[in-house]
Design a protein around this nucleic acid. Sequence first.
RNA 1: GGCGACAUCGCCAAGUGGUAAGGCAAGGGUCUGCAAAAUCCUCACCCCCGGUUCGAAUCCGGGUGUCGCCUCCA
Length: 462
Amino acid sequence: MKIYNTQTRQKEDFTPVEPGKVKLYACGPTVYNYFHIGNARTFMFFDVVRRYFEYAGYDVTFVQNITDIDDKIIQQSIAENVPFEKVAEHYTKAFFEDTKKLGLRPTDHAPKATEYIGKMIGFIRDLEKKGFAYEADGDVYFSVDKLDNYGSLSGKKTDEQMVGARIQENKQKRNPLDFTLWKKSKPGEPTWNSPWGEGRPGWHTECVVMSRDLLGDTFDIHGGAIDLVFPHHENEQAQAYAQNGKPLSNYWMHGGFLNMSGEKMSKSLGNFFTTRDVLKKFDPEVIRLFFLSKHYRSPIDYSPELLEETKSGVANFYDALDFVDFLKIEGNKPQFGEKAQGFVDSFKAVMDDDFNTAKAVAILFDLARLIKNLDEPIEERVQYAHALVEIGSVLGFFSNLDEKLRKDDLSGKLIEMMIEYRQLFKKEKNYAMADKIRNDLNEIGIELLDTKDGTIWKSKRK
RNA sequence: GGCGACAUCGCCAAGUGGUAAGGCAAGGGUCUGCAAAAUCCUCACCCCCGGUUCGAAUCCGGGUGUCGCCUCCA
């Protein structure tokens, strides 16, 4: 398996720290608002990474943190005039609800920053003892000049950044790039007692401490979106090196942005859709197909129109499964012949190449086309259907086949009866009645398909 | 100012040296009582200009355009 590693800027063979195991950490949300659909893209990608590693036979430990103490949460609590704990609680709950609705599997651990304050203080103390941190008026900073390889992840050189233009001047800092490990709290702000006085940890420290605590000093993959490379991941890595001389993660994976009309979607720009709102209009699998049709490192331009067009694509998969009445054959998965196995092998090959989900999706469409092709032998079409569900599931599709394909309940039986009556009318050349049945069914969302093997039906997809 | 990414059919998009996947949309044929569905067929000299090579969308140089990071950000 090959993975593009931001650290080396190239695809590398994946070798886990422990054979057969993958320790994966993806940066999670800061819970000050509903997460937007751009965040959803990144979260969903790592959900697929996790699923694929498991499919490939690895024992995966997947951690995604919840940043529940941060300036933005404090701001939001002032704006909403509710205690900051309530803000964090509310949006944390919303995060779990929305990711579930999106079809993301729960992570193995979802550590909250506020549960790790003690460990963070110990960690900062250690950095201080080792000479990498200094205190100034209740704040504690990391001294980037003390670390030789600072900037290695992002390719930044400490002396070439535009100080003053983009970087906040701060007279307490010895180097403008020095970052906050511990921040003195103002009156009324959430606060914890520390050797440096009342305060709270900096964001970069939260992630290092939680990831190492749950996954070990050096784990396999650390991920997030591209904007986290600098400074967040650079700073995490710096702290880890400084503290114990070990790399934090062997592979760094970063996803591309979701843009709005070519510009980055972000809460600060205000040009965003919350995932919650998008989910009201689109099926989670439509969103999934939309994201997975593109390479994860490329930017995607978001628009409701594009999502609208993607509906047909998802419908394609379910139509195909309807064609072979998948729910009835689901239980007996046949041995795959050469062709069906070929598709599965291709799927593995493209996913092994740095998670090329766009190619993987193309394989899904290839299978759907063959399943619907009545000229293909039925045994093979059945195999293709099982292959479609097998690899589609790895990409996170088909989690609710029963609901999407439900047929053998009472209404299903009634529809079968209507189809039978229509056949009788057709035999008598009573086309007016035959068409009335077809139209009436259509009006309640049931579409009839006359194939040369007889009439089948499907409910119209959202 | 420093660093980086991208530019492929009407739209979305894969492809990193061997002659352009896939999806959406469109047109035509078959099938059908009619329709839908299905199926078959059609639909790209890969932003521009040079260069390297037997051969380049793919490598190199130079343009043009778009975007990102350097501040919080998935």
